[in-house]
Nucleic acid binder design. Structure first.
Lengths: 159, 159
DNA sequence: TGTGAAACTGCATCGTC
DNA sequence: GACGATGCAGTTTCACA
C-alpha cells in the first residue's frame, strides 16, 4: 500500500468505471502494472465492490429517514431487515437503541406504513432527512503511505 | 424507464464495472442500444455516479459512528463538515437534533478527539457502530415499470 | 430507438528483466 | 513488481431501418 495504490483507489472512488489505461496514463505506469495492483487491492479486500449510485428521487423515492430502533428480538428483526426493500442500511449500535436503519421510501405515507410494520418488533425513533449535504466522502484521499500504510501491511497479511 | 432500464441499473448497482457487452448479452439487445440507454440514464440523473467501495478496516479506520448533532451555527458547521475527512456523510434532519453525521476514524481515541473538535459548534450524541449488517441495498431491484416508471416520466422531463 | 459492420481503443497474457 | 508486445474483447461511430 504505497502512494500509487492510494491514487488508484482515489480514482476508482471518484469514478469506478475509469479504465485501466486511463489510470496507467495518469500514474505514468504500464497497463499490466496497474492491472496487477488492482488485482491485489481486490484480492486483499481493500476494494469490496464497484457500485452505481442512483438518485432515489428519480426513482420515485422521495422520503429518506434514519430510524433508531430498540428491540430484544434481534434475530427476527434482522431477518425482517434482510427482506425489507425500504431498509437500505442496517447497523447494530451501542447506546439506548440497538439498531440504526437508513430507510428510503416513496412518500411520507409509505414511511408511516413502514414504521407501523416494524412496531411489531420494538420501539422506534425517527429522524427525517431534510437534505443530504454530502454522502460517501472519499476514504483514500489524503491518506499518506507513511501514516496508515504501515499498519495496513499487517492487516493485508490477515492480522 | 422500462424494465430493460431497471435491469441495466440493477446490474450496475451490483457491479459498476460490468461491461456494456456483458449487459447487452444478458439483456439480448445490441451493444449500441445499451450504450444509448446508459447515456440517457446518466444524462437524466438517474445514475449519479460509479464508485468503488473500500474497506475502512483495511485502510486502518476501525471505528465508525453516527453522531446526532444540534447547533445554531449551521453555516459554520457545514463548512467545517466539508473539510473534515472524518465525516463521510452529512444529513440535515428533522427532530431534536438538526444534523446526522456518519463518522469514520482510526480508533475510538481519534473519534473522541473528533467529538471534542465539534463541541465548539454545538451538542452531540454518539452511537457507535458495533457491526454493519448491510449497506447500500439496491434501489432498482424489484422496481416495476408499471408502478413507479410512470411518475418518473414526469420527473425525467424535469418536473 | 434499435441494428450490423468497421475502425478504434482497452485488456489479458505472455516472456523478459 | 514492472515492462513491452500481441491477439482478443469491448467500445464508438456510422449508415440504415
Amino acid at each position: 500500500m504505497d502512494e500509487i495504490d492510494y491514487r488508484i483507489l482515489s480514482k476508482l472512488e471518484e469514478n469506478a468505471r475509469t479504465t485501466v489505461s486511463e489510470m496507467s496514463r495518469a500514474i505514468a505506469m504500464s497497463q499490466p502494472a496497474v492491472t496487477e495492483r488492482l488485482r491485489k487491492l481486490e484480492e486483499n479486500g481493500v476494494i469490496t465492490g464497484y457500485h452505481a449510485k442512483l438518485s432515489p428521487e428519480k426513482l420515485g423515492k422521495h422520503t429518506t429517514a434514519f430510524v433508531l430502533f430498540k428491540t430484544n428480538r434481534c434475530k427476527d428483526f434482522e431477518a425482517f431487515g434482510e427482506t425489507s426493500p425500504e431498509i437500505v442500511d442496517l447497523y447494530r449500535t451501542s447506546g439506548e437503541y440497538n439498531y440504526l436503519l437508513k430507510v428510503v421510501t416513496e412518500t411520507s405515507e409509505s414511511l408511516a406504513r413502514f414504521l407501523e410494520s416494524i412496531n411489531a418488533f420494538g420501539f422506534s425513533s425517527t429522524l427525517i432527512v431534510l437534505t443530504t449535504k454530502f454522502e460517501d466522502k472519499s476514504l483514500a484521499d489524503g491518506m499518506e503511505p507513511s501514516a496508515s500504510a504501515k499498519p495496513s501491511q499487517r492487516i493485508l497479511r490477515g492480522l
